[in-house]
């Protein structure tokens, strides 16, 4: 587990989106095997501008606007990896990954296993996900639970601008396929100091975003931001709330979860996804397996509901709010 406020050199204040863009520029300059592909990633710099400036700097051979076809974006990435290249594919919204899921689950994730590492699947698939910004249908779905159930994929979920850069660089350099999930709400809504130049954050190391002793809120991606706000607000009530940012769901930092839950004895797990089968259930299972005798109260999940991601006027009801997280924290603390 990393230290809080780990020292950085030459930081500048960036949005998460700018941090992602910086990582892409840095990595493409470092390794000419990297090819960026996806819909609107070149001329338009990505619909959110995550790939802005790449085609101008690295050319149309390495930054490729593909036809509108998610399946072949993921499938061609497999072939590029077989050729020894390092594809960084963008799926414009995670909800559209269903049209690529046969390639992601059936091919990308299995390439190393089925060929006994003959082919190195150094593939990164970037995709924005999560709600709260009033998008049309299927633009906001949180599918990390489904993706975590696919053996052979790594699943990375940054919550800060600095981590977005450091984890993306690590993901691109990782020899395994990584699905890198970027919170829509965080693109411009999360900003912070980001080290300039080379910045690497290892995959599989959770981050203690807030120290605390009474209860820990375990979260990833944008829910870390919400959990931190709750923790900060509850200081006024003399509550000491820790926040653990998982950073990556696969690999999962089991030791960090056990350590903080053992210390606090009470835990809340927050996710935005559909509750049944969601990744929070995996975290709760980990807590039960690792920390059962340390628990002083039942673990509580704050999730979306078991319904499809709703349209705009119901969005705020669906996504976990600070109020729901605070209520869950109070609930686990009420049990003596």
């Amino acid at each position: 587990m990393s230290e809080i406020g780990s020292s950085v050199t030459g930081p500048s204040e960036l949005t998460m989106l700018q941090a992602i863009n910086e990582a892409l520029h840095h990595e493409m300059a470092r390794d000419e095997r990297i090819v960026v592909l996806g819909e609107d990633v070149g001329r338009n710099g990505g619909v959110f501008r995550a790939t802005e400036g790449l085609v101008e700097k690295f050319g149309e051979e390495r930054v490729v606007d593909t036809p509108l076809a998610e399946g072949v974006i993921a499938g061609a990435a497999v072939g590029l990896a077989m050729a020894g290249l390092i594809p960084v594919a963008e799926l414009q919204f995670l909800g559209f990954s269903y049209q690529a899921m046969h390639q992601i689950a059936g091919q990308v994730a299995r390439l190393r296993y089925r060929t006994r590492s003959r082919f190195e699947p150094a593939i990164t698939i970037r995709s924005p996900f999560g709600g709260g910004v009033r998008t049309p249908e299927l633009h906001s779905d949180s599918l990390e639970g489904q993706l975590a159930n696919i053996a052979g994929l790594k699943l990375v979920t940054p919550a800060t601008a600095a981590d977005a850069k450091g984890l993306l660089s690590s993901s691109i350099r990782d020899p395994d396929p990584v699905v890198f999930l970027e919170p829509l709400r965080g693109y411009r809504g999360i900003r912070g100091e980001v080290p300039s130049g080379e910045h690497l954050v290892p995959l599989g190391e959770a981050r203690l975003a807030r120290e605390g002793d009474d209860v820990v809120v375990i979260a990833w991606s944008y829910q870390v931001e919400l959990a931190c706000r709750v923790a900060d607000a509850l200081i006024d009530e003399n509550l000491s709330v820790a926040v653990l940012d998982l950073r990556s769901l696969v690999p999962l930092d089991l030791a960090a979860i056990a350590s903080v839950v053992d210390r606090c004895g009470r835990a809340v797990v927050v996710e935005e996804a559909v509750q049944t089968g969601g990744f929070a259930g995996e975290v709760v299972t980990t807590i039960v397996e690792e920390c059962f005798w340390s628990l002083e109260s039942p673990v509580v999940r704050v999730s979306g509901y078991d319904v499809p991601y709703p349209v705009g006027q119901l969005e705020d009801t669906y996504v976990p709010s600070e109020a729901r997280i605070a209520a869950a924290v109070r609930r686990v603390l009420e049990v003596a």
Partner: peptide, 11 residues
């Protein structure tokens, strides 16, 4: 088939 296209492209 997408793998073949990606591989040929990569070559």
């Amino acid at each position: 088939i997408p793998h073949a296209v990606g591989l040929a492209w990569g070559m």
